[in-house]
Design a protein around this nucleic acid. Structure first.
Length: 514
RNA sequence: GCUCCUGUGGUGUAGUCCGGUUAAGCAUACUGCCCUCUCAAGGCAGUGAUCCCGGGUUCAAAUCCCGGCGGGAGCACCA
């Protein structure tokens, strides 16, 4: 070795070339495109699933999961299943099943099959029975406090040692005599396991809620862990993804399938997506809506898909953004900037350029001779023109003229130059030429006779330092061109020298980003 | 507290499994120039990382080993 190191690099190289040419072949190690490859994935055989609980409106977190699920299915020419994980009748509502579908539709996520976990409830009972009969589960009638105390102290209760007969009797009792809370089915795990999930977790409990699809036909419901494991297995899922906080439940997931001798999908986790100051949790969002601090689930400050749409974020941008985050478990402070950047590049080409002024100041041009001007809707793209009548009376933004002095010159964009002659509550000026001069300040303008008043909502961060930001929604009044009224609701606009907005109504636009 | 996960420029990531081709690629942000009758988009260039820290193995470590530290999560009859 030391001998070799004494040789020069060139000598080492020629030595290698003559004796071990195969070592010189550079390993491919090329850059990856898109998501990392999946272990054990076979082309055409991959099945993924997106399993939302229909208990709320879909948000950016759902989008990340659904997009990842779909992208992997696509990557391997596989299938994506949309499965509503509706095993808690107290939480599910019919409108949410629909809202989630609408959200996915908007996102452009296409699934190959839709189903509900509740469709399989009878089958899940069968599996539950099987667990009991094989003594891998038992019915526990201890109260909740006792159970959780025993869990903490790693102690078993008498129910755990009850015989098969007792368990079977109690299991049937759950469908009839027991009241909610009086009996649960527990997985026979390991009460002394370091993983608290394994300390005999709940598999079934009694809930007498009104299920949106099954009404009150059933009262024994599987819990999440049992339901997902079985569903994933019977649905043919090969690769299942969920967020990181479920990681400790993997042991249980595999243990359940193991006891039942069922096929095991591969479970993988990714970090959850949430924007700073923009919580996704229903616990936080619900009161905000109920107390009227936000206008609804489509308030542009919210991370719901509906809100994003209203704000002017397009689905392709969300997809690119999610993919740029890749598939990792590291905690991320999501860069809203980068979502905006993707969005801006996409909507730029279709955003109609309009003039808009705030804090309007009247500008009167004495010797105006122009009667109208035709403005292009986009500087590069051909997306139409509009005609604006001109009579010498304009509005300009207060901010653009606040430091103006008599004698200064300005360029009214796409129109002509003016020279200021008098400054009062109005500004008077005279026409000073058509020639474009780069050195003149260029400002946008609107004419008094063809202007329309709108509000622009500017969403800001909802929570600052964990506290609701009272100033999270700024509303500014503005005047824009009458042409605004001809645009469709939902049109993407760029107010020149201001930023991108989306037309929300005839009198309101929402600021998307700069 | 216990357990698990995680730690690459301001931010998000690639590379880490199989140590050397790269003192680290891309995106975003920022700066400058070009283009442009927008403070947009587009083009070009640039600033910015001793790859959390400390040891160790090795001719060679972001990559392997050991020990710390920081951050997150779980400890529900909710998913």
């Amino acid at each position: 070795m030391t001998e070799i190191n004494r040789l020069s690099v060139a000598e080492q190289k020629s030595e290698l070339e003559s004796n071990f040419p195969e070592l010189l072949v550079i390993k491919p190690k090329q850059e990856r495109i898109g998501l990392p490859s999946l272990e054990g994935a076979e082309n055409g055989k991959v099945v993924t699933r997106f399993p939302p609980e229909p208990n709320g409106y879909p948000h950016i977190g759902h989008a990340k999961a659904a997009i990842i699920d779909e992208e992997y299915a696509k990557m391997y020419n596989g299938k994506l299943i949309l499965r509503f994980d509706d095993t808690n009748p107290e939480n599910e509502r019919l409108e949410y099943y629909a809202a989630i579908k609408v959200g996915l539709d908007w996102l452009g996520v296409k699934y190959d099959r839709v189903k509900n976990t509740s469709d399989d409830i009878e089958l899940i009972y069968k599996k539950g029975m099987q667990m009991i009969e094989s003594n891998h589960a038992y019915v526990c009638t201890c109260n909740q406090e006792t159970i959780s105390k025993n869990r903490r102290e790693m102690k078993s209760c008498k129910c755990r040692s009850g015989d098969l007969d007792q368990n079977i009797k109690r299991w049937h009792g759950m469908f009839e005599k027991y009241n909610p809370g009086d009996a649960i089915v527990r997985f026979r795990g390991n009460m002394t396991s370091e993983n608290t999930v394994m300390r005999d977790p709940v598999l079934f409990r009694i809930i007498e809620g009104n299920h949106p699809l099954l009404m009150n036909k059933y009262r024994v419901w599987p819990n999440y862990d049992f339901a997902v494991a079985i569903e994933d297995s019977i649905d043919g899922v090969t690769h299942a993804f969920r967020t990181k906080e479920y990681e400790l439940r993997n042991e249980l997931y595999y243990a359940i399938l193991d006891r039942l001798q069922m096929r095991k999908p591969k479970m993988l986790e990714f970090s959850r997506l949430e924007f700073e100051g923009m919580p996704v949790s229903k616990r936080i969002l619900k009161p905000l809506v109920e107390e009227g601090r936000v206008s609804g689930y489509d308030d542009p400050r919210l991370p719901t898909l509906e809100a994003m749409r209203r704000r002017g974020i397009v689905p392709e941008a969300i997809r690119k953004f999610v993919l740029s985050l890749s598939f990792t478990k590291s905690d991320t402070l999501a860069p809203f900037d980068s979502l905006e950047s993707f969005n801006r590049k996409i909507i730029d080409a279709i955003s109609i350029r309009l003039f808009m002024v705030t804090e309007p100041i009247k500008l009167i041009v004495k010797n105006n001779k122009v009667t109208y001007v035709e403005l292009k809707n986009h500087p590069q793209k051909d997306i139409g023109k509009r005609k604006v009548e001109v009579d010498g009376v304009f509005y300009v933004s207060g901010n653009d003229v606040k430091d103006l002095k008599v004698g200064n010159q300005l360029r009214l964009i796409e129109l002509y130059n003016v020279k200021i002659t008098k400054i009062g509550s109005d500004i008077e000026a005279e026409y000073s030429g058509d020639d474009f001069k780069a050195e003149l300040p260029k400002i946008q303008w609107i004419t008094q006779k063809s202007s329309t008043k709108i509000n622009i909502l500017i969403p800001k961060t909802l929570f600052v330092n964990e506290k609701f930001n009272e100033d999270s929604l700024e509303t500014i009044q503005a005047f824009t061109e009458k042409y605004y009224l001809e645009l469709n609701e939902g049109a993407e606009i760029q107010f020149v020298r201001f930023g991108y907005c989306r037309k929300d109504s005839a009198i309101q636009a929402i600021y998307t980003h700069k």
